[in-house]
Design a protein around this nucleic acid. Structure first.
Length: 271
DNA sequence: CAGCGCCCCTGCCCGC
DNA sequence: TGCGGGCAGGGGCGCT
């Protein structure tokens, strides 16, 4: 669920509720996430307030005076705002309660997500310091892609899903962006022309912007509990459409595994 | 360093 | 209807 647009929407959705209100409780209901949730979190967080909440890649960064809480949603994580006395869902593993009567809850059935703490500037935190540019920033541009791909033999799909190259392009968007730009996902990144990188770059930005625009709807579905943003599926032209006709040429779409991830494309339209 | 496979974990869907 | 196998939107890590 948490594609970059949903992380962005989550950020926008939670901020107003939990900024500048005192943290009154820290409940680590199950510390076993991707990495153990630090048991010392209450020492840092209790009685302090978040002054800023930002996103870098798919990491949410909640900063207070003493440091920054880092939250990643992994494959199945979601955050929601509830009243402090609301009963828990089965997989709500982490909770912060606030003086304004609200609570922030992390629900994550697969527990691939993470809740971490750093006192360093976030740009120096190990998990964040080698990340590539944000896909919607001007640093992500055709020249950058062309230059950094020259010696690379990996497939273009793996290349754009590599967070050292660019962050936030997950499996769905990689499939969609490659279809939109007519590039075969298997093609070596180093053997793609500047002109084609121009198309790919523009398509990636357009698709991500479009999805962010619809993120509100997605979040509503999401907090509603079923976790399947139905509106979103309608926009997908290749992902999840194996053996269905290409919207461009009618030829049936093909599915392969690339880097052990589902990869769907049109053998006629993507060369 | 580049590239690749593995793995963390639960839920769900499919075929038998 | 029960059960086993495979697969899922992420991404760090360890090995070659």
């Amino acid at each position: 669920m948490p594609e970059l647009p949903e992380v962005e929407t989550t950020l926008r959705g939670i901020s107003a509720h939990i900024l500048n209100t005192t943290i009154t409780r820290v409940n680590i209901r199950n510390p076993k996430l991707r990495w153990p949730v630090p048991a010392s979190l209450p020492d840092y967080l209790l009685q302090s307030q978040f002054s800023t909440i930002q996103r870098r890649a798919k990491y949410l960064l909640l900063s207070c005076e003493s440091g920054t809480l880092i939250i990643h949603l992994g494959m199945s994580g979601s955050l929601r705002i509830v009243s402090v006395n609301e009963s828990y869902d089965k997989h709500e593993h982490f909770e912060l309660c606030f003086a304004n009567g609200k609570a922030l809850r992390l629900k994550d059935p697969r527990r691939f997500g993470a809740v971490l703490w750093t006192t360093e500037p976030v740009t120096q935190y190990p998990l964040l310091q080698h990340l590539g540019p944000e896909p919607l920033s001007s640093d992500f541009n055709p020249d950058y892609l062309f230059k950094h791909s020259r010696a690379r033999k990996v497939s273009i799909k793996q290349f754009i899903m590599d967070s050292k190259v660019v962050v936030g392009i997950g499996n769905i968007y990689a499939n969609e962006a490659l279809f939109a730009s007519g590039i075969n996902p298997k093609r070596a990144a180093g053997r793609i022309s500047k002109a084609r990188y121009e198309k790919l770059c523009a398509a990636s930005k357009t698709i991500l912007r479009q999805a962010i625009k619809q993120g509100g709807t997605s979040l509503k579905d999401f907090t509603g509990g079923d976790g399947k943003p139905g509106y979103f599926k309608q926009e997908l032209l290749v992902y999840g459409r194996k053996n269905q006709p290409c919207t461009q040429c009618g030829h049936n779409l093909k599915e392969i595994r690339l880097n052990n991830r589902s990869t769907v494309y049109c053998t006629q339209c993507q060369k």
